[in-house]
Structures are given as structure tokens and as C-alpha cells.
Design a binder for these strands. Structure first.
Length: 471
RNA sequence: GGCCCUAUCGUCUAGUGGUAGGACAAUGCCCUCUCACGGCAUAAACAGGGGUUCAAUUCCCCUUGGGGCUACCA
């Protein structure tokens, strides 16, 4: 049997972390098995569905590298199919119209609860068909219910093992608002069958929908796919990361400088673990290693610090050139004009970045030095006059450099010998501050290499002037 | 309330019928002119109670904790 899975988001909000995780596990499963990954937009809720959210979902999946097979389907464009199946249910007396008002239902439920019963719809208007409804010309819109057969449904969940529900506790569920307004449980069942979905991999919040959907499958003579219910991703408060909250949108992660592969790597390890202790994966390695057997059962709390770590690991795994491409939106255009200088800047800041957004502040001084106080040039309690003397000597060494690449080995050696003689801190600290204008920066030799001879000599000269003014 | 799922360091987790390993975070030391990186080290967990067993973190039951569902959302 061909493996066909689907990701079926409802476009009622921006793509968020939880959605990505569901999509990811489906995608990894499909790619690992050599199957198909189908995208289905579940936009039956006309009030809340918006086209911009759908576009956001597609755009971000694409950005993450989660690619789909076949043209994405939209449920709002498949109403004929649902209507056909709804008619069939009516013909076979398995569905009926219900005109109870919410108030009536609430009264009924309360009465049941007061008797210690489980509240459920009793099915008092069980026989109305669409024709009768049309004839009656009722004013209230009504809903379509499915006659739930009392039955103990049990199914093997690929992650949890055997799961059992008693459908007698559900009552007759509402499957549509009208013949052309299907609801989730119904539309989803029809589509999974129509699209020949072999495995339904979804969040645990759907676990209790499964028996309802299986009863619908039974009533319509449709096959039952295999089910796998993923543990939920929880926030620090242990509540599920809700799609209705606007935080955790992928757009935010993208804007904050997270790499797609880092997000995917992080999410994969949230609820899944390989058989060894490997943690940092490339995407092909993830596809290769994934197995649904090793998915966790309990919910996992989302830990942003570990995401940062994955991001820094994935940033380092990139070549300088690749990183430059990713960095493009995170730097002023001017920085991009000198490719060689940019690449050198990236090389030296690469392992200092937790996110792409860090690049600008880490590399800023390379492109233009900020003003700094003369006092910053002195190492610890060194006398300004002494610091000046060191810098002047360093300037002489640098100016004498006539090698092809700066700094030449001769220059470096001279510098280090001088530093060894006069005290490393006393010489290297002022040089480094002169070159970077900052208390914290990469080392002086690295800086000389990034900046090149003329710029280095210029900056040291400026530092000397600063000291002279201060004296 | 009912139904269902679930339970190893703070967090993500490995693991086995013979008392626990990794990672992130934290702390300390080393490297070092600073920061970052790196290296080394420390602290840190089997929710509780019953069984089964020579032996239980591991198997079973109960309790407790956490979560999900209980929509004319998905």
C-alpha cells in the first residue's frame, strides 16, 4: 500500500510552531517511507478562515523546506463531494436535521447532569429529512446530525497502542450545518478516503475525534487509515501552544533570525529521539533516521534556549558563502558591496551568533568604528602615557609590513615578541580596542586580518590621537 | 463533572527485571588581553502507595500530578 499522509491546517491563523511540528512529522514519515505528502486546506469555517492565513502557511512551509506533492486541496472547493455523501447518509437514514436551539440543548444537558447522567443529545427530532425540512419552511437554520451507533470502538494507535472509546457517550454528533456546510469530523473523513490517505498523523487533541470519524467511515463504507497521535507541544505553563494565540508564528522566528534547518531539528527532537545520542541533524539525516516508533507519548514543553543552541549549531554548519545569503536581510546593503570583507566578517563572527540577527551587532565595528572613550584603551590600571608608547610602537610595526597578505608572519611575530616583552595585556588590549572600539571583540590578529593594513593603521593612528588629546 | 491520553534531572530525553546515560540551561576551573568558541568538572531525576518477583525505575493495580476532548472550531 502506498504511503500517503496529509497536513490539514485550517487557515484561521498564521502558521505556528505546533502546526509546523505536525507537518514535519508527516513530512518526515512520508519522505522516509518514500510516500506522498499532501496538503489540504480545511477552510470549512467560513467565519474564521482567511486567504492570507492560507498563503502564510504555504509560504512558511516552503521556507522550511517542507515540500508537498500534488496540488493543495481546499475543502471549500469540494462542497459537491460532501453534499453527495451527506445525501447518501440521509437516504440510508443515518443522518437527520435537528432544530433544537442552543438554549433547549443546554436545558437538556443540565437536566441530564443533574440526574448524574452524561450530557448528550437525545435525538428527539430524529426523522427529519432535507425534503421535510424544505416543506416545513422552518425559520431556524438547524443542523445535520449523524446517528451515532452505540459501540465500543477500539483502534491501534501507532504511538500509543490500543485505544478504546465508548461511542454511547458521544450522542449524535453534528456533522454539518447544512448540505453545503460540512463540519470538521465529516469533511475530514470524506477527504481522507477520497485522497487515499494511508496514515493520519495528527496532534493528540484529535484522539477523541478518532472514534467519531471511524463510525462515520463505517456508515459510509470507507476504509480506516492507520492513526498516530502525536504528543502536544506545551508552553512553559504546560498548556498547549494554541494556534489562536498570535505568538509563536513562524514569521516571528524567521524575523528573529532562526534557520529553517535549526527549527526543524529542534522540533524533531521535541517528542522524538534517535536510537543513539545524536542531536544535530541535517535535513537528509533527519529523513533517514526518522521512525514513528520512537515518537514520545507524553507532551513536551517547548524550550526556547535549546532552539537557540540548535540555531547556533546550524549557523556554524553553513559555509561562509551560504551564511552570507541567509544574512542578507539582516544587514545594511552597504555591507554587501565588498564581498571579500563580508566573508571575512562572517568567518570571524560565525561562532559568536545565536541567531542571524546577531550578525549586525557582532560585525558592526568591522564596517565602521564607533566612538569610544580614550580611557578604554588602557589595560587595567596602565598609565595613559605607557599605553600611548605601546600603540606608537605597534603602529610602527604595522606600517613596516610589506607582505602580500596582511598581517605578514613577520609582523605577527614582531607584535607578539613585543607583547611578550612589555606584557601581553598592556600591548594587546589597547591594540584590540583601537581596532574594534569595543571592550569585547575577536582577537587582535583576527582583527588585523579582517580590516587589512591601511584600515588597521588608520584606526591605531586614531587611537593615538585620542590618547594624545586625553593627556 | 464525564471520557481519553500521560508520568526519568529545571527542560528535551536514553535506558534496563539487578538503582540511571546524553543534550540544553546553571555553576566552577582551564584556555585567554576581552568577549565568544573550545576543554574539563560539579550539581541535578525514576511522583506516591500497593502488589508480582530473589530483585522493580522497568510488569500490574490504585492514588496523585499534568494534559487533551467534552463547539453549529479544527
Amino acid at each position: 500500500m502506498e504511503v500517503r499522509v496529509r497536513f490539514a491546517p485550517s487557515p484561521t491563523g498564521f502558521l505556528h510552531i505546533g502546526g509546523v511540528r505536525t507537518a514535519l512529522f508527516n513530512w518526515l514519515f512520508a519522505r522516509h517511507e518514500g510516500g506522498k505528502f499532501i496538503l489540504r486546506i480545511e477552510d470549512t469555517d467560513k467565519q474564521r478562515s482567511e486567504r492570507r492565513f492560507e498563503e502564510d502557511i504555504l509560504k512558511n512551509l516552503e521556507w522550511l523546506g517542507i515540500d508537498w506533492d500534488e496540488e493543495p486541496a481546499r475543502q471549500s472547493e469540494r462542497l459537491d463531494l460532501y453534499e453527495k455523501n451527506l445525501k447518501r447518509l440521509f437516504d440510508e437514514h443515518k443522518a437527520y436535521y435537528c432544530f433544537c436551539t442552543p438554549e433547549e440543548l443546554e436545558d437538556e444537558y443540565e437536566a441530564q447532569m443533574s440526574q448524574g447522567l452524561v450530557p448528550k443529545y437525545s435525538g428527539k427530532c430524529r426523522s427529519l429529512t432535507p425534503e421535510q425540512v424544505a416543506m416545513k419552511q422552518l425559520k431556524t437554520p438547524g443542523v445535520i446530525r449523524f446517528k451515532m451507533r452505540d459501540h465500543v470502538v477500539s483502534f491501534p494507535d501507532m504511538i500509543r497502542g490500543k485505544v478504546e472509546f465508548n461511542t454511547a457517550l458521544f450522542g449524535d454528533i453534528i456533522i454539518a450545518k447544512s448540505m453545503r456546510e460540512p463540519l470538521y469530523n465529516f469533511a475530514s473523513v470524506i477527504d481522507d478516503a477520497d485522497m487515499k490517505i494511508s496514515h493520519v498523523i495528527r496532534g493528540e487533541e484529535h484522539l477523541s475525534n478518532t472514534p467519531k470519524q471511524m463510525m462515520l467511515q463505517e456508515a459510509l463504507g470507507l476504509p480506516t487509515p492507520k492513526y498516530a497521535h502525536l504528543p502536544l507541544i506545551l508552553g512553559a505553563d504546560k498548556k498547549k501552544l494554541s494556534k489562536r494565540v498570535l505568538t509563536n508564528s513562524l514569521n516571528d522566528y524567521r524575523a528573529q533570525g532562526y534557520l529553517p534547518s535549526a527549527i526543524i531539528n529542534f522540533l524533531m527532537l521535541l517528542g522524538w529521539h534517535p536510537s543513539d545520542d545524536k542531536e544535530v541533524f541535517t535535513v537528509p539525516e533527519m529523513v533517514q533516521a526518522f521512525s514513528i516508533k520512537r515518537v514520545q507519548k507524553a507532551g513536551a514543553i517547548y524550550n526556547p534556549e535549546k532552539l537557540d543552541w540548535f540555531n547556533s549549531m546550524h549557523i556554524r554548519a553553513l559555509s561562509d558563502k551560504e551564511l552570507a545569503e541567509y544574512l542578507k536581510p539582516f544587514m545594511p546593503e552597504a555591507w554587501y558591496s565588498d564581498t571579500n570583507r563580508l566573508l571575512r566578517a562572517i568567518a570571524v563572527t560565525k561562532e559568536r551568533m545565536k541567531s542571524l540577527a546577531d550578525f549586525q551587532k557582532e560585525a558592526e565595528f568591522i564596517f565602521s568604528i564607533a566612538d569610544y572613550p580614550a580611557s578604554m584603551l588602557a589595560w587595567k590600571n596602565a598609565a595613559p602615557a605607557k599605553t600611548l608608547e605601546h600603540l606608537e610602537h605597534v603602529s610602527e610595526i604595522l606600517s613596516a609590513d610589506n607582505g602580500t597578505t596582511f598581517p605578514s608572519e613577520h609582523t605577527t611575530t614582531a607584535l607578539m615578541e613585543y607583547a611578550a616583552k612589555e606584557g601581553r595585556g598592556d600591548v594587546l588590549w589597547p591594540l584590540r580596542v583601537a581596532l574594534s572600539g569595543r571592550e569585547n571583540s575577536p582577537g587582535p590578529t583576527e582583527l588585523l586580518r579582517i580590516l587589512g593594513g591601511p584600515e588597521s593603521i588608520k584606526r591605531v593612528g586614531e587611537a593615538i590621537q585620542k590618547l594624545k588629546h586625553a593627556l
